[in-house]
Nucleic acid binder design. Structure first.
Lengths: 211, 211
DNA sequence: CCTACCGATCGGTAGG
DNA sequence: CCTACCGATCGGTAGG
């Protein structure tokens, strides 16, 4: 009888030996979404993957939405820091702008599950107090203002310019994550693709009147 | 007793008096997604809304995914025809290009449920034989080639240019549909916003070297 | 297109 | 953090 009382799943749990169930649940959620799709996400399955009973998650999250909010927050934080990293490598304002966009697309593709939670229509509440979100956009607006001052970007409403940048990279990221692009389009790699597309926006498609 | 045998829901069903349950199920799916979100979509609830038993839909769709494929097909058809309509109104190639993008965004916002099904990660199969999908992209590539010939758009790979256009309008549409934009950004109306953003891509953000 | 039924999963809570 | 339980919903099928 005593033998049967030996703790099971010690190996699994040891990864979270600090008792950080909360983080284990976030990780399990992402793995589940990545493997089975968003529709497969349930608190019970997440608990199962984390090696606890299905009642345990309620100690950390009030409900499913609260868990998703935490996942989204984690995602926005990671994405913003990724963008900052890549931008810090560049010297000129316009290169920082490009790096910012490439980082956005790369993050989305490399963390598709995070990306889906961050931007999916999952939340009933505005998800307002997420400073990380505004942060990323503010980062972009700042880079544009800097580029304008340096004479590398046209004068104009930086908010509207930022929205164009955001739309382009968000659209490209979404199409990639949702598998809408042909293999040929992605053949050269995501980074190169993102760079090319960003440059098309910076340069513009219209032929300059002065031929 | 005979009184109790009177047909119920005759009024509801009369809208589909031709017995077009298939279409009724598609409509019910869209209404359900629009009202309750994608997560609320179940074959049983769709059947309920269409006024039939939950076993009836299987006469028309093998499973949930088959229903969604049909919804997506309907969406791609409607979107492509909307784009063609709006483009037909314009005289110059570059205006047709702009109209094409504005139509894309307007369709997405006005038919958010369709848009979500069309581009969501819901299908296990590639959804290949959807000519409508390719059609819309071909429409865009054609408009770009035409604009290049007219000297209104820079020479270059029309596929890459088309991807930039698609990314921008798809990103803007996604951000709008998923409620990521502030009310101020949308204050002037979706059509005006889409037009402005499209023009930013055509014109480019980078300052022309000749100041 | 319906009735009746299957096994399975879910969110959530009581009580410890 | 667990056991045990609740009501509810689901996808799918048999058989008519």
């Amino acid at each position: 009888m005593a033998l049967r009382r030996t703790r099971k799943k010690t190996a699994d749990k040891s990864a979270y030996h600090h008792g950080d169930l909360r983080q284990a649940l976030l990780d399990a959620s992402l793995a589940l979404i990545a493997e089975e799709g968003f529709g497969a996400l349930s608190l019970r399955e997440v608990a199962r993957r984390a090696g606890v009973t299905h009642a345990a998650p309620y100690r950390h999250f009030a409900d499913k939405e609260a868990l998703l909010v935490a996942v989204a927050e984690e995602g926005f934080r990671a994405m913003t820091s990724r963008m900052k990293e890549e931008m810090a490598r560049e010297q000129s304002p316009i290169d920082r702008l490009g790096a910012c966009g490439v980082a956005y697309v790369l993050f989305a593709v490399e963390h598709a599950a995070h990306f889906r939670v961050m931007f999916g229509p999952h939340f009933t509440r505005p998800l307002k107090s997420l400073d990380e979100d505004a942060d990323a956009f503010a980062l972009l607006v700042g880079a544009l203002a800097e580029a304008q001052r340096a004479g590398e970007v046209r004068d104009g409403d930086t908010s509207r310019q930022a929205l164009a940048c955001w739309s382009l990279v968000h659209g490209l990221a979404s199409l990639l994550v949702d598998g809408q692009l042909t293999p040929e389009a992605v053949a050269g790699g995501v980074a190169a693709l993102a760079r090319t597309q960003t440059l098309l926006l910076l340069r513009g498609l219209a032929r300059p009147p002065v031929d």
